[in-house]
Write a protein that binds this DNA or RNA. Structure first.
Length: 370
RNA sequence: GGGUAGGUGGCGGAGCGGUCAAUCGCAGCAGACUGUAAAUCUGCCGACUUCGGUCUACGGGGGUUCGAAUCCCUCCCUGCCCA
């Protein structure tokens, strides 16, 4: 098992314990949840997106606002994703949305069709303009179903892009006169799909560049939805113990525990917010007492609040839950009603419950003597 | 009383001789969602079913036709206009 699993780190003057979960505020917002409420849910750090904020409102405007923290009124930590995921979710899934060249990713804007070139250097500059606490190199993720040759090329390109990011990062730190204490952390991202050899090759390319932490990139499940335990565990074993290990886009409560057991300690995912907004609420956290953290015994369940059976269920989502929604006494019948009539408050109450649930899971992981 | 437009599945509303158990939207029932093109998307949505079909259906009744939600007659009922 990995070294110290529950440790405190200080990033730009703010402390944080591992492991931690960051909800995705892609466009500098957790759709309808205020910062005060986020904190009440136990959230300590969030993720914003380079690509989306670059297009709208533009990183220069965020800089003008005094940085993303001030802009969105969030005092906690902020990590920005590089736009690497959009290389995958937009371009690889829809070739008409742009193309990848050695220079960078040429996006056709999802907003108006205009063209935008996101180079590794640009990705760094934008993230510095956003003024985030943690940033990620631009990478080139590929679907796990891609042929090995394609993933091999993506690994090599990701390493070259990581190097360009590293160079631009150092340039920015110097130009902005940032110190060791005030500089943001920089994460490299390990690609390589399902292949041990390619993951290793990628790690070997990234380590000499010296990042503050390393991410597990691309999907962690295969085409059949099976968790790639071997490659997830193997990749973690290749990384220095004193570096942060960031499982990008992870995941379901079960997958977070799986990753954590494999040695990863940072997570971000849209699941708690998106599924909450879609009416799926996590309940029945039975973790307490199971020191082995067997995923099978997690006891995580979910209710679809839009189901007709909740129409007249006047109990809260989960008795004893400390989230703002349950503590506030909002019943299932009420939330059900809000979804029925299309009121945004239904999604907001649900997102808060799910975020609290995720943070409760994280707190439990911190408490487990590993 | 006269004229006129209509009556289609829970609602709205297509269809105007066969390929109609009937486009589509809403409502309803369930599901999906993993570095957010997602307050989105998918499936089901007359009854029964051994899922191949079977039955009852487009206001009621009666015709024409090989065949009618679609054409004709008649009755009933709505909306609008004129008295």
């Amino acid at each position: 098992m990995m070294g110290e699993r529950n440790r405190e780190l200080v990033v730009r003057g703010k402390s944080l314990r591992t492991p931690f979960f960051m909800p995705d505020a892609t466009r500098a917002s957790i759709r309808g949840v205020m910062s005060e409420q986020l904190s009440a849910c136990g959230t300590e750090a969030i993720v914003v997106n380079t690509y989306h904020l670059m297009l709208q409102p533009g990183s220069d405007l965020v800089a003008q606002a005094g940085g993303v923290h001030r802009f969105m009124r969030w005092d906690g930590l902020v990590l920005s994703d590089s736009g690497g995921y959009q290389v995958y979710s937009l371009i690889h899934k829809n070739p008409e949305m742009g193309r990848i060249t050695e220079e960078g990713a040429e996006f056709r804007s999802v907003l108006d069709g205009s063209k935008h070139l996101l180079t590794p250097e640009k990705a760094m500059q934008v993230q510095f303009d956003l003024g985030v606490d943690m940033m990620v190199v631009l990478d080139d993720p590929r679907p796990n179903s891609a042929v090995e040759e394609e993933i091999h090329k993506a690994v090599e390109r990701s390493v070259r892009w990581a190097e360009r990011c590293r160079i631009e990062y150092d340039r920015q730190v110097k130009a902005r006169r940032l110190t060791e204490e005030s500089r943001p952390l920089l994460f490299g991202v390990v690609q390589g799909g399902k292949s041990r050899a390619l993951r290793k090759k990628c790690v070997e390319g990234l380590l000499p560049l010296g990042f503050d932490g390393y991410g597990f990139g691309a999907r962690h499940i295969d085409e059949n939805g099976e968790f790639l335990t071997d490659v997830v565990e193997y990749t973690a074993s290749l990384l220095p113990e004193d570096k942060l290990r960031f499982a990008l886009g992870v995941g379901t409560p079960q997958d977070i525990v799986r990753f954590w057991r494999c040695g990863w300690d940072m997570f971000d995912c849209v699941i708690p917010t998106r599924e909450g907004r879609h009416g799926r609420l996590f309940v029945k956290d039975n973790l307490i007492g199971d020191q082995n953290l067997r995923v099978e015994s997690l006891g995580v369940d979910a209710v679809n609040i839009t189901n007709a059976k909740y129409r007249d269920d006047f109990s809260v989502i989960e008795e004893g839950c400390g989230c703002p929604t349950c503590m506030g006494g909002y019943t299932k019948a009420y939330i059900h009603h809000l979804f029925r009539v299309g009121e945004a408050l239904g999604g907001q109450l649900s997102m808060m419950h799910n975020l609290f649930f995720y943070n409760k899971l994280i707190k439990y992981l911190r408490s487990v003597n590993n």
